[in-house]
Simulated scan of single mutants.
Amino acid sequence: MKITASQVNALRQKTGAGMMDCKKALVEANGDEQAAIDILRKKGQKVAAKRGENETKEGLVIAKVTNGEGVILSLSCETDFVAKNEDFYALVDSLVNCAANSSAQTADDLLNEKFDDKLTVGEKITEQIGVIGEKLEISNFDRVKAEAVVAYNHPGNQIASIVGLNKAGDVAEDAGRQVAMQVAAMAPLALNKDGIDQETIDREIEVGKELAIQEGKPAEMAEKIAMGRLNKFFKENTLLSQDFIKDNKMSVEQFLNQSENGLTVTEFKRVALK
């Protein structure tokens, strides 16, 4: 049957596939749009299998707050060319919106959520693999719920963060924005020293002892020196103890308390693609 330009354009608008791909799919489907969409999806599945071993080192990360809850999601692709495309940004943004309006707690959960009336998130990604011709995958997904949540997206969308606070209000949220920028810039490992796992602590102590001995310090002093270095490690790598980047005369904990008495961070997430 004859396929009209309007049919091709309508399918292209719905799927984002190229004009020739849309026309071929409609011809194969005898003009049935839904069947043509399924054909394009199957093409995507074939591409996904073919490119399954390819590395996805590029991509975008977006953090967003909706209805008092923050989500952070990164979609990885193979090339910088794709990552910088406006359509790719729109795809990642739509996935973030879908995540924000779902109850998904993990990336696997999210893949099974509805993207629209016809596709799940996983099926949408598979469809777009066929459209783009690169492997795509959700490389990070997390969410934060608190009295107030603030999101920060660093220009270029290669780094993003979300911060949960124990108090709401304009003052708390303004302070939270500054702390979210701190998280993005300083990459803390945990909220405080209680969040550092014992394996990391043991390793830092062992390294500290070895360095002290190499510096010629007596073996009996090595442990004490190592503990001092451990405390420095906690200060540099836990968010509340870090020097506040806008005023290094105070810690992040002190900055928050100065902004509003008793204000603190309850949880944070950070994703950096590079």
Rank of each mutant, 00 (worst) to 15 (best):
G52M: 10
Q158V: 10
K249M: 04
F244K: 00
L75V: 15
E28S: 14
A49C: 03
A17M: 03
A184C: 07
E147H: 08
K193L: 02
N166L: 05
L211M: 13
V65R: 00
R143N: 06
V171K: 15
E53N: 13
D116K: 05
G44C: 02
G31L: 02
V171Q: 11
E123Y: 04
K118Y: 14
E267L: 08
M1P: 13
V82T: 12
V207Y: 09
M221E: 12
E127T: 14
A172W: 07
N101Y: 05
F81D: 02
K269W: 05
G122T: 13
I39A: 10
V183G: 01
R229I: 01
K209G: 08
V27K: 12
I213M: 11
V96T: 08
L26A: 04
K209T: 14
V179S: 07
M250R: 12
H154Y: 15
A151Q: 11
N153G: 09
G176N: 09
G228Q: 07
M250Y: 00
N166Q: 04
G52I: 10
G70C: 04
Q182C: 04
V144T: 06
A99Q: 12
G16A: 06
E199K: 15
D21W: 00
K193T: 01
S94G: 09
K114F: 02
E28V: 01
S139M: 06
Q128P: 04
N261Q: 15
N54D: 09
T66D: 13
D142H: 07
K118F: 14
A35Q: 11
A146Q: 08
N231F: 03
I225G: 05
E55F: 12
D116L: 06
D247K: 05
I3H: 08
Q105C: 11
E113N: 10
Q128T: 11
L165V: 02
Q258V: 07
E253L: 11
E58S: 09
E127C: 08
D108K: 15
S241H: 04
G31K: 06
P188E: 03
K246L: 14
V183S: 01
Q198A: 10
E78T: 11
E223Q: 13
E113S: 13
K84I: 05
A180G: 10
A160G: 14
G156I: 13
R177L: 15
Q158N: 13
S76Y: 10
K84L: 09
V131Q: 06
E78Q: 15
G16L: 01
D80C: 09
E220S: 09
K249N: 15
D87E: 15
N54K: 15
G122E: 02
K224C: 03
G228Y: 08
V96A: 11
L273H: 04
T120H: 07
G31M: 04
T4D: 11
K135V: 07
T56P: 05
K193W: 01
T66S: 12
G228R: 08
E260P: 02
